[in-house]
Design a protein around this nucleic acid. Structure first.
Lengths: 357, 357
DNA sequence: TTGAAAGCGCTACCAT
DNA sequence: ATGGTAGCGCTTTCAA
């Protein structure tokens, strides 16, 4: 192992050839040298532990082989799965990823993107924290390849891959109606700046309006358990007054988790007193079956985060290869997995059987 | 927004000054120019959207302001928390991070490190997948700053920050004994190449040997639920035969989660039939209280992953600033949080009260 | 088959 | 206060 950094000149000197020949060797242009020099150079390079500087190569070639991945919060299992699948999709290429987690702050997001631009990244994958990110909208007009992951940005022209926000909501509602729930709510974190939340809430409103004219969207904060419990209690009080079975649909993995926690702490029994369901977009956690485990199983809409990352990466590499191609939108489907938390009919059946025994 | 990339020469031409002056401006050396040129340059740069190339700066200055973060699996909440806290600790500096998730493969780990070396990273934070990583051990002898996060590498000289692997195990065992458990097991994934697992298993053996001479370490695979259930069933059979209350201590968040899941599926009741506890090193998930939620609360050893990331980053920055300083080892303490899953005495008390009623 | 030299975008030294 | 220029490590053209 080399003690200090060698340059191409050092290696050329060591091997007794010119920089040019070393460079040819590094770039697999073996036709420019004899077998014997080739072998000789190989040996010298291995023995010396020489690592060509990507920095210098980048400066020359004008591409860095770095993909910038900007995400809202790396600790969200959704985001971690996204990053992992991007890395997997990049295996076998020469690209590395540079990540920045913006803590859902627009300022940090812009800072991170500027820093990555300065690093001469070859492309950007963005899981934005704000759908009004002007900076990105403008940047998209330059020639820097950008693909949005799941969350869109208003009024911009982008490549984007996102999880279906409409059909799964319809499917959940159909299922809940069939099971006999009549008072259905949608819990989401603030949808103002996050397209997926807004789109899911809108799909919910659209689908529900034939059955219900009240506003059933509840905007919660996932770290304010008291507030969430208060919302749930209000729903249960209404149930007591009006007798319509209530159900809650949640916008994403975190909200679903937190609402489940609150229901448990309130001692509610599912599916008898209330139903719970929602998007479970937590990648490895979905695989581990957390929704299967809590409160005896929660019905979820379960998209493949890995597919998302794969498709995003495909799109980005395509655009890097062909900067002038038309922008594409790709939608990831998300099947409904029905579990105990919404199966009122079979619950009722079991209760009836117990009585008969 | 610029359509194509501007260079310092372009900007110098636009501003009607020399490259030197622009360079001075970029490096805040305002003493070398008049107020008026300074203002003029500022305006030109903003209007043109010019971004100095870090690549060129790096080539010149011989440092990249990139920290490489090599981790075993970014989807582990422990690792995600580590990355997040490293990023936080780096806020306010000029450093960016480049991540690579190695899927617990030694080959990929070495590849990733080589790629990062080529990128001229200024330092490396490594959460290794293999404690016999020769490549890293040798690399540590070069002048590249390296700090290990939590997992150590045999026979190497490193800066390292890790979660205490001894005292918490002792604390858990003391607690379990006090509660009346007499047949205590340690569940871990294969400890052969992962120092934390090996160290915890060893601490367990050391602490238990006064009470129990059998080998109570069970090596499981976290994705093989059948195998885990079989182990648990065996333990319960022994309990039926011999009457000593069993307890399981788990090596990390994933094992704890999976074992909890299996116990639930087996219909075991905690703490009455068996106790469960272990390291909960899942950062944000610990905060969300998953261990509080499953099977009515699991007793956990709960280190702060954020502190780990913070300390690791501090150490790395210190070493970058002062390459010749002595290697440091920092230990993160981990308090024991006692929950329902091990509280046999209060459970028995309640049962007794019920009888009296 | 090999090598000399220009130049990528920037910094820093040395002039003016 | 401002500018000319060498050089960081590499690639690539052109010449030998």
């Amino acid at each position: 192992m080399a003690k200090s950094k060698l340059t191409i000149s050092d290696v050329a000197k060591l091997a007794g050839v010119s920089k040019t020949t070393i460079s040819h060797f590094l770039n697999d242009k073996f036709e420019f040298m004899s077998e014997s020099t080739q072998e000789h150079i190989r040996k010298v390079i291995i023995e010396s532990g020489y690592q060509p500087s990507k920095i210098a190569q980048s400066l020359k070639s004008q591409n860095s082989f770095i993909i910038g991945v900007i995400v809202s919060d790396i600790e969200s299992p959704f985001v971690a799965g996204l990053i992992k699948s991007v890395e997997r999709a990049l295996e076998g290429t020469n690209y590395l990823i540079m990540t920045a987690s913006t803590d859902n702050s627009l300022d940090k997001e812009i800072q991170a993107i500027e820093a990555m631009r300065a690093q001469q990244v070859d492309g950007l994958i963005i899981h934005t924290s704000n759908n009004e990110n002007n900076y990105v909208r403008e940047l998209a007009k330059s020639n820097l390849p950008i693909v949005l992951a799941d969350r869109s940005i208003k009024n911009g022209q982008f490549d984007i891959v996102y999880v279906d926000n409409v059909q799964p909501i319809q499917n959940v509602l159909d299922h809940l109606h069939e099971e006999g729930y009549e008072d259905i709510y949608f819990f989401t974190e603030d949808p103002e700046f996050v397209s997926t939340r807004a789109n899911r809430a809108e799909a919910f409103n659209e689908a529900i309006k034939a059955h219900d004219t009240d506003n059933k969207v509840r905007i919660i904060k996932s770290d304010d358990f008291d507030m969430i419990k208060a919302e749930i209690v209000e729903i249960m009080e209404r149930y007591v007054r009006e007798g319509k079975k209530p159900a809650i649909v949640c916008e994403g993995g975190l909200v679903l988790f937190v609402v489940a926690k609150c229901m448990r702490e309130l001692g509610l029994s599912l599916p008898a007193e209330i139903a719970l369901s929602g998007y479970d977009d937590w990648g490895v956690f979905s695989q581990l079956g957390w929704a299967d485990m809590l409160v005896d199983g929660i019905t979820t809409v379960t998209p493949s985060v890995y597919e998302l990352g794969q498709r995003v990466t495909d799109l980005l590499l395509t655009r890097i290869a062909n900067p002038m191609s038309d922008h594409e939108s790709v939608i990831i489907e998300a099947p409904l997995i029905i579990r105990n938390s919404t199966e009122l009919r079979s619950y009722n059946l079991k209760q009836a059987q117990k009585k008969n025994d």
